[in-house]
Design a protein around this nucleic acid. Structure first.
Lengths: 356, 356
DNA sequence: GCTTAAAATTCGGACCGTCCGAGCTTTTTC
DNA sequence: GAAAAAGCTCGGACGGTCCGAATTTTAAGC
C-alpha cells in the first residue's frame, strides 16, 4: 500500500494538489466545505502533514532555502538548588546538542523554565510562535514535571534517566555498564579491594546503578574482597576516614575528589599504595582519574533522535518510551596506578563490554 | 545577484544538477576531479549546502510510493546448544522485525549462521548478491563473533546486550529497570521478603543486572528482609527447597516456573501465602505471573534503527555504539497475589519508573 | 588495431510541499 | 444585462534528492 501524499489525496478528491496543501495548512483561500472534505480524506488515508518538510519547502520556494534552519528548543529546568557540577554537565550536553544541530541544519534556542525561569504556559506560547516542535530537555534535579506543555505538538528527548511527567524517550550514560567496566579494568590492573563511597542522593535517581553494579561484581570477579559500601546521606572526612581505615580498600571510587586528601591523611601514598577514581570527570580538573560521561556525545545523540522524530512527524507522548545509553570513558589520571608490568594505555578509551 | 543553486552551478559548470548534487554530498559515483571542480565553483559562487533541506528532500524521496524499499537480513546464530526458550524468543523478535519491516516497505530474509548454518564468507556473498545492506542480528548464546563479514557495506543492530566482534548498536529489554519496577510493585502489594533464585549463566551476559538491581533495592526499599540470593550454576529442586525453607521468602522471583511446584512441596499455598513471578514470560504459558520482555517491540525498534541508518547511508562499524532499552511489562497471573485491599489492576502495564 | 564487454561517470525523470500569479466561477453593483 | 469584484481553485516552478538509464571511458581478447 502506497504512502499517501498530497498528490495522491488530490487525485482521490478530484482537486489540485495546491488546494489539498492549502486546505491542510489552513489557508483562508479554500472554501470551508472543501477543507473538511480534505481533512477527512487525509485522516482516512493516514496522511499526516509534516511541519518540518512544509517549512523547508516554504523557504525553498521563497528562495531562502540556503539559509533556512530548523529550530530545536533546549529546556533547562532551573532551581535555586542547582549545583555548579550540574550546571557544567548541562553546558557540556548543550555543547553537543549545538554542534550536532548545526551539522544537521538546525538552530538551537535555550529556555530556562521552572522556579526561576519561564512558566510552562508562557513557554508553550513562545514555542508555538517560533515554530519550535522539537525539544531537548536537559537533566534536572529530582523528577521534573512538564506535563503542562501541549505535548501533541512536540517531540522531546530527556537527557537523563526516566521522566514520567510526561514519559519521554531518554538518552544518558550507562552508569551500570560503566561501573562494571571500571571494576573489570581495575581487576585487570591488579586491584583486589575496591571500595565505593557514595551519597545516596547521587545514586537514587539512577535506581542505584552504581551500587547495584558494584554489589553484583563483588560476587563474580574472582579474589575480590567485599569491602562494604560507604553510603551516608552526606559524606564527611571523618566518616570517610573511619571507613577507609577500617576496610582498607586499595582503590577508592566516588564522586568527591577531596577523598584523595582524606586518603593521604590516612597514610595512603597515591597512586603507589592506593588509587582513586572519580565517578564523574566534570567534578575534576584532571587532578585525578575519572569517568567521562561524554556529555557532548549524549547531547549529540539526543539531537539525532529528536530531529529523526521531526522528520517522521512523530509528535506527542510516545507509547513506548525508550532509553538510549552510551558508555562512559575512563580518563587516566595521576591518582590511578597503571597495571603492574603492562604497557601504558592510551589516555581515553571506552569501557570494555566483556572481560573475556 | 541571485542566490546560487545547484542548477545555476550546474549550468555554469556544464554538468547536470545531479552531478553537482552528488559531488557536494560526497557520492562515490562522481569522479574526484569533477568533485574538486564543483566544490571550487560552489565556494566561488557562495553556495552553501543546507543539510536540513537535503535531509528532508532525501527523506521524502525515500519514503514515498508503493515500490519496495529493500531487503533486511535477519541473522540467527545457531548452535547445538540453543534452547527452546531462546528459539521462542528469537521467533518473537523476528515477528516484530517482520511486521515493522513490512510497514516500512522492506522485505526480510532470515539467515542461519554459525555451527549448523552458513559460514560468514558464504553469507557475505549472498548478502552482496541480494543487495542486502541492513542487518538485524538475533540474540545468540554467549558472545558471537561476526567480524568476518565485510562491515563497511553493512549497518547492523544486535537485539541483545553488547557485542564486540564487531561493536554494534544494540536494542534489548531493560532488565535492571524491570527488576527495580517489579520489586517496587511487590513492595506496594505488601510483600516484604522477596527472594531471587537464578542460574548464574542467565545473568552473566546481562552483567548481572538481575542481581545488581535486586541487591541495590534490598538496601533502599524500607522494611524488606534481605533474603540471600540463590545463585547456583544449576538449580535443582533440592537446592531450591533448602534455600526456600531456610529463608522463607514471601515472593519468589526466577526463570523457572517449576519453582511453583517446589514451593508447594514446601507447604506454600500459592498465591495465598506465597507468590511467584517468572522473570521471562516466554518460559510460561500463562500459568504464572511473569515479566514480558515485549520481544516483538524490540524487533520493531531494531528495525526502525536499521532502516534509519540505511536512510542516512550510515554503514560500517559505529564509532559510538549505543544501547537502546525498553522496559518489560508485568503480566499478572494466578501465582501472584494482588495487593491487599487494592482494586484489581489491568493485566498488562509498564513497570513504574519511580515509586513516588 | 579492432571489437566487445565491463566499469566509470554523468544524466534526467520524477518526487515532495509550497508560493503566488492566473484562471474560472459566482456574486455584487450600476 | 454588463462589468467589476470577490471567491475558489489551479498549475508552473522552485530546490535537492534518488535511482535507473545513458553515455563515455577503459580493459580484455583476438
Amino acid at each position: 500500500m502506497a504512502t499517501p501524499t498530497l498528490r495522491t489525496l488530490a487525485r482521490e478528491l478530484g482537486l489540485s494538489r495546491t488546494t489539498v496543501s492549502d486546505a491542510l495548512r489552513g489557508s483562508p483561500r479554500v472554501k470551508p466545505e472543501t477543507v473538511e472534505r480534505v481533512r477527512a480524506a487525509a485522516k482516512a488515508a493516514g496522511y499526516d502533514r509534516n511541519p518540518l518538510a512544509g517549512a523547508v519547502m516554504s523557504f525553498l520556494r521563497r528562495s531562502c532555502g540556503q539559509k533556512f534552519r530548523g529550530v530545536l528548543g533546549v529546556l533547562e529546568i532551573v532551581s535555586a538548588e542547582q549545583s555548579l557540577n550540574a550546571q557544567r554537565y548541562n553546558d557540556a550536553v548543550f555543547e553537543g546538542v549545538s554542534a550536532k544541530a548545526e551539522q544537521l541544519g538546525f538552530k538551537v534556542d535555550r529556555f530556562q523554565i521552572g522556579a526561576t525561569g519561564l512558566k510552562l504556559s508562557r513557554l508553550d506560547s513562545i514555542l508555538q510562535t517560533r515554530g519550535i516542535n522539537g525539544l531537548i530537555v536537559l537533566p534536572a534535579a529530582g523528577f521534573p514535571d512538564l506535563s503542562g506543555l501541549s505535548w501533541t505538538r512536540y517531540t522531546a528527548v530527556y537527557v537523563d534517566y526516566f521522566v514520567d511527567s510526561p514519559p519521554m524517550h531518554c538518552v544518558c550514560s550507562d552508569h551500570y555498564r560503566s561501573m562494571i567496566g571500571l571494576l573489570r579494568e581495575l581487576h585487570a590492573r591488579g586491584f583486589r579491594r575496591p571500595g565505593l563511597f557514595i551519597e545516596t542522593s547521587l545514586d537514587e535517581r539512577l535506581h542505584f546503578r552504581w551500587e547495584g553494579a558494584f554489589l553484583a561484581l563483588q560476587h563474580y570477579v574472582p579474589e575480590i574482597s567485599k569491602v562494604p559500601i560507604l553510603r551516608p546521606a552526606r559524606v564527611t572526612p571523618e566518616v570517610f576516614q573511619e571507613w577507609f581505615e577500617k576496610y582498607q580498600p586499595d582503590v577508592v571510587l566516588g564522586h568527591f575528589p577531596d577523598a584523595v586528601a582524606w586518603m593521604k591523611r590516612c597514610g595512603a601514598k597515591i597512586p603507589r599504595t592506593h588509587s582513586f577514581v572519580c565517578l564523574n570527570s566534570l567534578r575534576t580538573q584532571g587532578e585525578c582519574a575519572a569517568l567521562d560521561f561524554q556529555a557532548p556525545q549524549l547531547g549529540a545523540r539526543a539531537t539525532e533522535l529528536v530531529t529523526g522524530h521531526l522528520m517522521h512527524s512523530e509528535f506527542g507522548i510516545p507509547s513506548q518510551p525508550s532509553l538510549t545509553t552510551l558508555p562512559a570513558r575512563l580518563l587516566e589520571g595521576p591518582t590511578l596506578r597503571a597495571s603492574g608490568g603492562k604497557a601504558p594505555r592510551p589516555a581515553r578509551r571506552t569501557m570494555p563490554a566483556a572481560a573475556v
